[in-house]
């Protein structure tokens, strides 16, 4: 379990990639190709060495750690435990709860992002003036420091009575609420926050896709006297389908990685109301210092993300292949 190569020394890169099977195709290859291949391996070598060291080796260490009992508060109880951590996980009510929260959080926020992003893209597709301002406006939430965004929502926007959004809620007659402190409201509040952050992404992709749609079908539809709704339902929507599927796939995969903003806003609380699987694993590993069990939870998280990526990739491929 000792990660021996976490720190690539200079010169290790090319050497590491020269060991790849097939890197030296023997005397069969033409001298020119051979030189090209060697140059290529020299150029990609450093990137492969870095990724091997900081991404593949750590994953193997993670898998290993999930089979051990590692509790920093009780260092004397260590040792190999096999799949005991995974067995414990299946009986862990909090694990199942965090899966449920992750599903609600991910699916709801991506659905909202798609609806709002599509609506904005359709409404703003023909606006000529102010595109520059609009681009800056929608760029902001995506690039701002996520953890600071979470803290700003927690304080300046959602604090009862003094937060801007709570003030709006009072003005609208909905009253003042402890948005992040009330277990019934907290999950909804962080979903709204995530939607605020990432609707612009959906908007930008769909706006670009809309701009690239062919004009002819619309001209034909106008001649045939199609209503705006018919044009949307039978032309725009089918034509946008590949872009919509792609954007949903990307958003779902990235939403599964969400951590910073929700950590800053609620830390998973109140209680476990907003505790997505990411946050639960983090809390187990670095608040309870139970690294072995935390490793098992993050391995489960990795498998979910991997599964989702493969499944979504298939869906995307199928949609793109269909006429």
């Amino acid at each position: 379990m000792r990660p021996s190569r976490i720190y690539p020394s200079p010169g290790e890169g090319p050497a590491a990639s020269a060991e790849l099977p097939g890197a030296v195709p023997g005397g069969r290859a033409l001298p020119r190709l051979d030189r090209e291949a060697r140059l290529a391996l020299l150029l990609v070598g450093p990137s492969l060495a870095v990724l091997l060291a900081v991404s593949t080796v750590p994953l193997l260490v993670l898998l290993g750690a999930s089979l051990f009992r590692i509790e920093l508060t009780r260092p004397w109880v260590g040792g190999f435990v096999g799949v005991a951590n995974y067995a414990a996980m299946l009986e862990d009510v909090r694990f199942w709860h965090s899966l449920q929260v992750t599903a609600v959080y991910t699916l709801t926020s991506v659905a909202l992002q798609l609806l709002l992003g599509l609506a904005f893209a359709l409404a703003l597709s023909a606006v000529v003036r102010g595109q520059g301002l609009l681009r800056v406006a929608v760029l902001l939430p995506m690039i701002l420091t996520p953890v600071v965004v979470g803290l700003v929502w927690r304080t300046l926007l959602l604090t009862p009575r003094y937060g801007l959004l709570d003030y709006l809620s009072i003005l609208l007659g909905l009253g003042s609420h402890s948005w992040l402190g009330d277990p019934r409201l907290a999950l909804g509040a962080v979903i709204v926050m995530h939607t605020w952050q990432w609707t612009p992404f959906v908007f930008l992709v769909l706006a670009a896709a809309l701009a690239a749609l062919p004009v002819e079908p619309y001209e034909a539809a106008l001649v045939d006297g199609a209503t705006p709704w018919q044009r949307f339902r039978f032309l725009t929507l089918p034509l946008l389908r590949p872009a919509i599927v792609t954007v949903v796939v990307i958003r779902l995969i990235i939403a599964l990685r969400a951590f910073d903003a929700i950590y800053a806003a609620t830390g998973g609380g109140p209680g476990t109301a907003t505790e997505i699987l990411n946050l639960y694993a983090y809390r187990v590993a670095f608040n309870s210092l139970n690294l072995g069990y935390g490793a098992a939870l993050t391995t489960a998280l990795l498998l979910f993300t991997l599964g989702a990526t493969v499944v979504f990739g298939r869906v995307r491929g199928a949609v793109e292949a269909s006429p």
């Binding site: 976490i6 994953l59 993670l62 590692i70 951590f259 690294l291």
Partner: peptide, 15 residues
């Protein structure tokens, strides 16, 4: 593709 939380524990152990 791997979520950053997944790398935290191995990095912590290695570092």
């Amino acid at each position: 593709m791997a979520p950053p939380v997944g790398f935290l524990i191995p990095f912590f152990l290695a570092f």
